[in-house]
Structures are given as C-alpha cells and as structure tokens.
C-alpha cells in the first residue's frame, strides 16, 4: 500500500475577481522508501500541493475536492487539532530556506526537544538523547557540543541538516521537502540529496521532493511528476521521463537544459509563458505554446494516458490511443 495517495486534489483561491483554481484534479502516490520528485515552474502549484497535504494552505486557499490518504487514512478534512498531531509526527516538512526556518532565539537543542516532547511522551533527558541521535543521523559533527548552539552559529548546509533532523523528530513515514536545496550551494546540495536518499533507503521514508531543479530530480528522485498550471502533465520513472519525455511540455523543458560540451548560440526555450490562473485557456493549459496542438486540445482537457514503458503517463491527446488512467 502506498504511504501517500492523492486522488483528484483540487485547490481553489476565492478572490474578488472570481475563484482561481490553483490545482486541478491532481492524482499521485508515493510508496514507502520512494522519492517522488515534483517539478514545475513557479506558480505551477507544487508547493501548494505540499502545503495542502499537511493542512497548511494559506487562507483563502482551500481544498475543494479530492482525497488525501496517508497510510490509508483520510486526512483531507481533519480538524486543526487532529491535523496538528499528524504534522511533525507522521509527516515531516522541510522548507526551502534553512537560514530562516529556525527560530533565532532558541538553541537547536531546545527546538528539537520541544518538537519531540510535543509528539512523544518522553522525559527531558530521553528527548535530549533522542535529539542527539537525530543530529548524529543527519551528520552533524560533535552533536553534544552543538546541541546548545544557536542557529546563527551554523552554516547554511548544517542548518538544513538541523531542519531535516527537526522534520525527522518523530519518525515520520512521509517527508515533504519543499525546495530543500535551492538556497544551498552545489556541493552542499549534493550532501543534502545524499542524506535524503539515505533516509528513504534506510528508514523507508516516503519522500515528496518539490523542486524546479531538474538536476536535483535526476540525482535524487525515483519517479517524477511534472506539473503545469496546476495540472499533472506527466508522471513516470525518473530516467524514462528525462530520457524520453512524452508530454510536449516536458520535452520542451528537457530541451531547454543545456548539455555539457554542447556549443550553443541560443538556449532553446518554449515560446510564451505559463498562463495566469485567471486566463487559463480551454482544453489543455499548454495548447497555446504547443507545436502539436490539435483542435481537440483547445476544447477538452486530456486525461492521463499511458505513454511509453514503465507506467510513464502523460496528459496529452497525442497519446489518446493508450490506456487512460482513471
């Protein structure tokens, strides 16, 4: 059974000029020990999806449809109090900027112990022992000494490790990592990715890795979901999506990544920009930028069709011959 199973998730923002639907009928699932990458441009709805899972959508945004199952339990419409017990305990969240994710006025030890004691019935001493174990696990040297250090005494990479330790406090079965490496330099990025991979392999944590960096996805993810304008464009094994992208958007995305050793005058790009939420065209949201757009693309939204091997699927009429995924 999948750890996380999302089906038909819809997120809407009521505004003065009408309702904006930010995420539409999104379905995906993550198995234990698996890292699912979520890629998309800014504003595509990747972070919203992550926030919706843990019930932290900023009002007025709210879930208007669909089901989120965590270990088979429906967590879509839990009350705030019930959701609070899921967050931090069963789902760990990692945010983009480790420099601002930690409260500057408390030592990392205090923040770890507080989080542990919120969810687990442990004495102070036991919580401290657990906190130090966690620091060892995420690779912080001399954890006993660092326990009483304040966030400003850590480097960016070390702080992100502390953030991960905080997310791991209570052995969550799911980690939602929202751009965990974006604010870090490349060598530290590699270390953090290696850490996330190790946690998935060794502890069987299901990980949802939200990023816009294809390199990170290629390095870390097992499967990848490409989101365009709040809709799933393509999903599949990471190698097959990268090597043989099926959806025209994914193809354009891959083509626009320059290869090492390639001599280019101009970087290939996809003409146009992602439509604003209030002016999304009828049919496929990508149709104005798509070379292969047909009449049907401008009228009806495509379902998710099998395209290629290994359960690679694309929401594109080009593959309408394949099996449609409900």
């Amino acid at each position: 059974m999948a750890i996380l199973e999302i089906s038909n998730l819809c997120i809407e923002f009521p505004t003065r000029r009408g309702v904006l639907s930010a995420v539409e009928h999104l379905s995906l699932s993550i198995e234990a020990g698996e890292i699912l990458g979520i890629v998309g441009e800014s504003g595509a709805g990747k972070s919203l999806t992550g926030n919706a899972i843990v019930g932290l959508l900023e009002p007025p945004g709210h879930v208007t449809g669909g089901v989120i199952l965590l270990n088979g339990q429906d967590i879509t419409h839990l009350s705030d109090a019930e959701m609070r017990k899921v967050r931090g305990a069963q789902i760990g969240v990692i945010f983009q900027d480790p420099l601002t994710s930690l409260d500057p006025l408390y030592t990392i030890g205090q923040q770890l112990v507080q989080t542990i004691q919120t969810h687990m019935d442990l004495s102070r001493a036991d919580a401290k022992r657990r906190a130090i174990d966690l620091l060892v696990e995420v690779g912080i040297p001399a954890p006993e000494r660092r326990f009483d250090a304040y966030p400003h005494e850590f480097s960016g990479g070390m702080r992100q490790r502390v953030v991960i330790a905080l997310a791991l406090c209570c052995d969550p079965c799911l980690i939602i990592a929202d751009e965990p490496t974006t604010a870090l330099d490349v060598s530290v990025q590699a270390q953090i990715i290696a850490l996330l991979k190790r946690l998935a392999r060794e502890k069987g944590v299901a990980t949802m890795l939200v990023t816009h960096d294809m390199g990170v996805i290629a390095e870390a993810a097992d499967r990848v979901a490409v989101i365009y304008s709040g809709r799933l464009a393509e999903i599949g094994e990471v190698r097959s999506v990268i090597d043989t992208p099926k959806h025209p958007y994914t193809k354009g995305l891959m083509d626009s990544i320059p290869q090492i050793g390639q001599n280019l005058e101009l970087l290939p790009n996809i003409p146009g920009a992602m439509p604003r939420l209030d002016s999304r065209p009828d049919g496929c949201a990508f149709n104005p930028r798509c070379e292969k757009a047909k009449a049907v693309c401008r009228e009806k939204m495509s379902g998710l069709f099998t395209a290629g091997e290994k359960k690679q699927m694309a929401a594109c009429w080009v593959y309408a011959g394949g099996d449609e995924y409900a």
Partner: peptide, 22 residues
Amino acid sequence: RTDFIKFARARGLKSRDINYGH
C-alpha cells in the same frame, strides 16, 4: 509570516508554544 513560524506549524507544535514561545 516568517518561515520559522511556518516551520514550527509544520512540526505540529502547539499553537500556545508557537504564539507565546516563538
């Protein structure tokens, strides 16, 4: 609105701890 309050929420801390402590 800061990230560390968002992160504190995401860790499921009690709102009393978030509001007064952090």
